[in-house]
Each structure stands twice: as structure tokens, then as C-alpha cells.
Design a protein around this nucleic acid. Structure first.
Lengths: 221, 221
DNA sequence: CGCTAATCTAGAACAAGTTTCAGACTTGAT
DNA sequence: ATCAAGTCTGAAACTTGTTCTAGATTAGCG
């Protein structure tokens, strides 16, 4: 990675989705620019992963000046995390259409995650770019990364079919997310097979059983 | 990050610890150089984390030419992962001296990981540098990252006090490692508190109970 | 000791993320 | 329609990881 200028300009951003400095609503043309940028980012990422997303190329592909690109997304990592948010929304929509069919919460969650995993497998380079950005993100990207995390939580809770999760269940969900992210990384870096990821996901999903109050074998714990 | 030259020179390295091109044993002076480099790396990392480890500075601090530094460690990530291996060995030695006191495997593992976590807290910047490097590593660093992973596995199995882990237990250990890494990241990026990390570790360690054949409540599973 | 291959050094050069700047364009309000 | 403020553009500059080169040094060997 080149000049990762330390003073990662932490603009006083506050609004949720857009990365613009202030929190003003975007004009139509601005919204269009933002969309073009995200599209270019995803496209380049689909080609060659994290390294292929070069800011100059993104700017060119999206017909925007480099300075403007940085105005919308203050760093490459911000850009890729935003790209991930974008893709996650798609994903959530898609998953919602066909709810998982498993009988237990654990099965449904595992099924949902494996479905997401298969989607990522279709664009492994894009997955690489997004996941690497996520885990490489430093504090200046925390709000955005957190948003991704929340969205993931929602997806998992959706799969569990829970209205009011208990604190224990939320803990289990946290651990599932940890495992999901880390397992993805091992897969992306070629250190784990698809089968291994599947096993890991299924293994961690058993934690859900452990917190399922309707499971009679959990009384002794 | 500056010019992350894509063609990450993947030299035909094969030997285990040293990153030198071939697999020849190091001379004394070479061993000393390697040590100086790792020391400088850890020192700079302790200051300002990942970003503070600048290759030129490492070279200068360790009294080695930039080209030589790259001969020993083909990239910044390689260097930091090697630094991690180094620290892990220390850690393992330290942990061995005072084995965990918990009664169950799960307790001992959680205790061990929390002890390691406290060690990391003492040098948060160093932890940042090492963990970021680990998760950002691409395929060219897989062997080294894998070695770190194996070492971590050994530490956990040690804590469990197992001679012949079952496949199920190994799966649980994998998930624990995933959680450990990911939880560290959320802590380092300021998205999770120390307390939260503790909870996550304790939560995932319950998976061990699930695979403990001596636990009578596990019969129905 | 003298030779050769490998290693090391100093420093330039290159790549890509990030910053900066002057000038053109838009927007919103008057 | 007009003006000020805010945006966008194009291009250059700066930073830091990485590569390359020519010339010293060192290591091992006969």
C-alpha cells in the first residue's frame, strides 16, 4: 500500500449513509455521482479484488475528479466499506424473499449464512476487496464498519426469527458474526476450503441451541 | 497505503522461520540482522501501530539497507506477521509457566485467552500492527499466517489439556480462534470494549462444553 | 592468500493512496 | 438575473511501500 498518509482526515461527518463532509441531503446529481462511484468501485473490485480498486481508476471510471472522489469517500477503505454496505442491502433484500427453511434457529442461521457465502463465491474478488477493507479499517471508519456489523446482525436475527432476543442470544449472534468474518478471511486468503468454512459456520451455530429456551436439554446450564 | 505494488514478489521460499529467499541456514551476522529488524519492527509498532512501522525507518533503526530489509522480509505484512510469530513464542512460553487454574476446559481456555488479551492490552499499538497485518495478509503470506494460526491452536489445546482432541473439539477450537481474532479487531478499532471482548470469549468457550464427552448433559446431541 | 558467488549498501526510481490548489461550474437566495 | 458560497475539475505534489542498480563487502573454497 502506498502513502497511507497518517493524518487520515477525520471530517466531522455525522449523517448515516453518505460520506459527505456535512450532513446535508444530496442533490440529484450528487446522488448520481455517488452511485457511479460505488458502481465503479464494485466493478473494479470484481475484477482484481482490493488491489484492483485504484482510486485514480475509480475516479476515471465514474467520471469524477480524484478530489471529488475523496470528498465523497475520505479513503479507499471508506469507499470499500460503503461498497459493502451497498451490497449488504441487496443481499438482505434477496435473502428476505426466500426465508430459510430449517426447523431450528441454528439451522436457519447456518442456511442463511451459507447462502450469503455462495453469493460471495460468485464474486470472490469483490468479496476479497470488501472483507479486507472491513478488517483493515481503522478507527476513522468505525461508524461505517459498525453499520455493516449492525446490518449483519439484523440478517442473522431475521434468520433466527426472533422478536426479542435475550442477552445470551445476542452474545451468540456476536460470536457467530466473529466466526463469519474470520472464516471468510481464511477462505479468501486460501487457508481454508469452502467445506471448512461450512463446518465452522455449522459449528458456531450450535451456540444458538445452547441459548434456545425451548430446548429441554438446556435446563442444566 | 502507498504503492502496494501488485506483483508481490512471491519468492520461492520454503524453509520455516526465516524469510530469506532460499532455505540456507543463517550465519551469525545474518541472525543478528534478522533479530535487529524484528526488534525495530516491534519497537516502532509499539509506538504508533501499523502505520508507524515504516519500512525506511525499520531499515534505519536496525542498521540495515532498505534492500536488505526486503530480502529478509518481502513485504511490510511479512515483517509484521514474523513479528507476531516472535511475540507468540514469548507468549506461549510465559503462559506455560503458569498453567490456567480453571476446572473445566472451557474455563481454562477462557482464562488463557484473557491472559493473552491482557498482555496485548499492555502494548495496544503493537497488537494493532500485528493483528492488522494478520488479517490484511494476502495469499503470498499464507504460509506464515498459517504458522501463527497453528501456534495459536497449540496454545488453546494446551489450555484444554488435551492429548487427542476429537474432530469436534478441533472444530470448536477453530471457531474459538475465529472469535478471538475478530474480537481483537473490534476491540482494536474501538468498536468493542474490553468487557465485551471478555463476554465474547466466554461465550464461544461454551462450545467446548458442548464437545466434552465427560459432560453428562451432552448425551442427547 | 586469491578468487567467485552471494550478500549488503546507498540511493534513485516507481506505484498508488492522499493532499493541495487554482480556476470553472452550480446552487440558492436575493 | 446576479452574487456569494459551496462544489467540482484537472493537474501537480507529497508520502510511503516496493523495486532496481551499481558498487562495496563477506563467506567459503582451493
Amino acid at each position: 500500500m502506498p502513502a497511507e498518509a497518517k493524518p487520515a482526515k477525520v471530517e466531522a461527518r455525522t449523517s448515516p449513509p453518505p460520506s459527505l463532509p456535512s450532513s446535508a441531503p444530496l442533490t440529484e446529481r450528487q446522488e448520481a455521482r455517488r452511485r457511479r462511484i460505488l458502481h465503479a468501485s464494485a466493478q473494479l473490485a470484481s475484477r482484481g479484488g482490493f488491489d484492483a480498486v485504484q482510486m485514480r481508476e475509480v475516479a476515471e471510471s465514474s467520471q469524477v475528479a480524484l478530489g471529488t472522489l475523496y470528498r465523497y469517500f475520505p479513503s479507499k477503505v471508506h469507499l470499500l466499506v460503503a461498497t459493502m454496505q451497498d451490497q449488504l442491502e441487496h443481499m438482505h433484500g434477496t435473502l428476505r424473499k426466500k426465508p430459510p427453511s430449517g426447523e431450528t434457529s441454528a439451522q436457519r442461521v447456518a442456511e442463511t449464512l451459507m447462502r450469503a457465502f455462495r453469493a460471495l463465491q460468485r464474486e470472490p474478488h469483490l468479496a476479497d476487496a470488501m472483507v479486507r477493507a472491513l478488517t483493515f479499517a481503522d478507527r476513522s471508519v468505525s461508524p461505517e464498519v459498525d453499520q455493516v456489523s449492525r446490518q449483519t446482525t439484523v440478517i442473522i436475527l431475521d434468520a433466527m426469527g426472533l422478536e426479542n432476543p435475550t442477552p445470551e442470544q445476542l452474545s451468540a449472534v456476536r460470536v457467530i458474526e466473529h466466526t463469519w468474518h474470520s472464516a471468510l478471511i481464511t477462505w479468501l486468503s486460501g487457508r481454508a476450503s469452502i467445506a471448512q468454512v461450512k463446518i465452522d459456520i455449522e459449528t458456531v451455530c450450535r451456540l444458538i441451541d445452547l441459548t434456545d429456551p425451548t430446548d429441554p436439554t438446556n435446563q442444566g446450564r
